[in-house]
Simulated assay, not measured.
Amino acid sequence: MKVKSFSKQEAGFTLIELVVVIVILGILAVVAIPRFTNMTNDARIAAVNGMNGAVQSASAIAHAQALVQGQAGASGTITMEGNSSVGLVFGYPTAAGILAAMATTTGFNTATAGTFALNNSSGTAIANCNVVYAPPAAANGVPTITVTTTGCGT
C-alpha cells in the first residue's frame, strides 16, 4: 500500500483563527461605535460654546465702543464696523442689537431676538441647544448670557 504525501503546504486560515478575528472585531465595534456616535453631541456642544464666546465678545466690544462714544445711558445707538447700527440699553446691545453686533451667525437660528439656537442638518433649530442673550435690566448692570446644551445630543 502506497501512502500519498503532499509536498506543498496547504494555505488558509483555521476555524479557530477566523473565530478569534471575528471576536476581536466585535470587541472593537462595541468600544468604538459609541465613541463615534458621541462625537456629534460633542461637536454641537462645542459649536454652542463657540457662539457663547462670540456673543460675549460682541457684547464687550459694543460696550467699549458705547463708553467711548458716550452712549452708556438708558438707550442709544452705535455703529460697528462701519455699517451695523447696534441698539443699546445701559451701554450694552439690546436683544435685537446683539445680532447686529455679531459678524456671523451661520448655522444658528436667530428668529427670536437674543437667542442663538443651533440648527440641525435640516436647518431647523434644536431645542435646548442655544445661547440666550439678555441685556442689563438696570444701569451699571451687565448682560446675562445663558448657555443651554441639554438638547444638543438629540
Rank of each mutant, 00 (worst) to 15 (best):
I22S: 15
V23Q: 07
V23W: 07
I24P: 15
L25T: 13
I27E: 08
L28D: 02
A29H: 11
A29E: 13
V31A: 15
V31C: 12
A32K: 10
I33S: 12
P34G: 10
N38V: 00
N41W: 05
D42T: 14
A43I: 04
I45S: 09
A46I: 00
A46G: 01
A46D: 03
A46H: 01
A47R: 11
A47T: 05
V48L: 01
G50W: 03
M51W: 01
M51R: 07
N52F: 10
G53N: 13
A54T: 12
Q56A: 13
A60P: 04
A60L: 13
H63Y: 14
A66R: 14
A66Q: 12
L67E: 14
L67V: 15
Q69A: 14
A74F: 04
A74G: 14
A74N: 15
T79E: 14
T79C: 10
M80C: 10
M80F: 05
E81M: 12
G82W: 08
G82H: 09
N83R: 14
N83Y: 08
N83T: 15
N83F: 13
V86K: 07
V86P: 02
G87Y: 02
L88E: 05
L88A: 08
V89R: 15
F90S: 09
P93Y: 01
P93C: 03
T94F: 00
I98W: 05
I98H: 04
I98Q: 05
I98C: 06
I98K: 01
L99I: 11
L99H: 07
A100C: 07
A103V: 15
T105N: 12
T105P: 10
G107M: 12
T110P: 10
T112N: 08
G114K: 09
G114I: 03
A117M: 07
L118H: 03
N119T: 09
N120E: 10
S121D: 11
S122C: 00
G123Y: 00
G123M: 00
I126D: 00
A127Q: 13
N128W: 06
N130A: 12
N130T: 12
N130E: 08
N130P: 00
V132R: 03
V132E: 01
A134I: 04
A137T: 14
A137R: 01
G141R: 02
V142Y: 13
P143I: 02
T144Y: 02
T144E: 08
V147W: 06
V147Q: 07
T148R: 11
C152H: 05
C152A: 05
